[in-house]
Nucleic acid binder design. Structure first.
Lengths: 224, 224
DNA sequence: CCGATAGTTCGATGGCCAACGAAGCATACA
DNA sequence: TGTATGCTTCGTTGGCCATCGAACTATCGG
């Protein structure tokens, strides 16, 4: 086998060791005592931690008289720590930039059988502000107004008993971090878009592409 | 405080969780059962691990009927795992590219008071192959031949009693990962190089620069 | 409704490991 | 040579946590 990532993870996973490692991120070599103070632990405990870090090859050590100087073993170790520090701040300030980098995917894509991405979120918001649907923490309901709205556009409410699948459901959008519409109604809308040639889709991609005037007709039909 | 890196580290630090996370590196969302199989643990244990990963924000979960689909929470998580995987292979196949990127520093630099970098390592190897010094695991000794060699070149062996500092010492080279010569003899050689104007040094840099014909004279004097 | 499958909760068990006191070794300095 | 300082080794203690059996809820497919 090989040095598992779990081994490295558990080395970083101890609070005292993590504090030592971040202290060493500055690039300067530090002595065992300095690192013990940094981590706020006794010298004995520090010795134990440091020998683990050295035999785990995260640190290298240099003996200089009665001092022992420790530093990060190489650039890769620094990179791991750097990415961990980045992640730890990202977890604090949620998603500045999330989701796919592909702009087409980000704009509109298929999520199982319904519309997701920016277009999906815009649609959802538009339906909410028109009081066609009501968003109520986890649950989404169709209003009477909404029932008329979709009846008008050809949705078959009589087929309802066929399945226990809910009519409306909100689905957390991966790239946008807000809701888009799932459920039978979400599926029907996507079908509707294909049927009226407002969108097409490329083989082997989840991206949904609006046709020439498709976006305009989409906005008109759903009140965006 | 904030999500400490040790928290993230310990989440990755468990072997079962690490296997789940690497399985999710493919980008596909996997169900709890699939991940349990992947990590070779029972469903109960998997539930426990997965809820930890979700509340630690390394994973996001989507409920789809009676299935739960897990995937990496965001790009940063993937980056952390990627850097860990890189590190774990680097630890296997030591240093393709280590040390300073600055070529001057890499080539020759001062390590405390002696010569390090490529030039330092070449010198050390040359002295070993000429049987001037003997490298013996951690300890380096000057041979009788070596004693004559350095006496000839002006090293003052009589000053020995002045200090307990060892005559010869090997020092692990940070960029090259092999030995170079430290100790009183290492110091003397560097002084020798400056004295005979084979090298110069720039203010504020540890880099050692060979002068016009300095490198040639260096090689000649020490048998490289 | 029934059986099957997916996932959960609870509790008990066992093992690992961080922490430090005490004592020891190594080095430096006067 | 003696004394302070830096680091280590040993053994003990205490707490945390991965694991799974048993029993439970939720969902699907008829």
């Amino acid at each position: 086998m090989q040095p598992e990532i779990s081994t490295i993870g558990s080395l970083i996973g101890d609070p005292s060791r993590a504090r030592m490692l971040t202290a060493l991120m500055g690039g300067k070599a530090l002595t065992a005592t300095e690192l013990a103070l940094e981590a706020d632990i006794s010298a004995q405990t520090a010795t134990s931690h440091l020998s683990q870090l050295v035999s785990g090859k995260l640190l290298v050590v240099r003996k200089q008289g009665r001092h022992k100087y420790f530093q990060l073993a190489n650039q890769q170790v620094a990179e791991v720590l750097e990415s961990l520090l980045t992640l730890s701040t990202v977890l604090l300030i949620p998603n500045i930039a999330t989701g796919p980098t592909d702009p087409e995917l980000k704009h509109a894509r298929i999520c199982y059988d319904h519309l997701a991405g920016e277009a999906g979120v815009e649609l959802y918001d538009a339906l909410v502000s028109q009081k066609i649907i009501v968003d109520n923490q986890e649950q989404t309901h169709l209003t009477d107004l909404g029932r008329a709205f979709f009846n008008e556009r050809g949705f078959d409410f009589s087929a309802k008993g066929r399945s226990k699948r809910p009519l409306c459901k909100s689905c957390l959008d991966w790239s946008e971090r807000t809701n888009h519409l799932a459920g039978r109604l979400g599926q029907w809308i996507l079908d509707d878009l294909f049927e009226h040639a407002m969108v097409t889709r490329r083989a082997d991609s989840r991206a949904v592409i609006f046709t020439a005037n498709g976006r305009k007709r989409f906005k008109a039909r759903y009140g965006l």
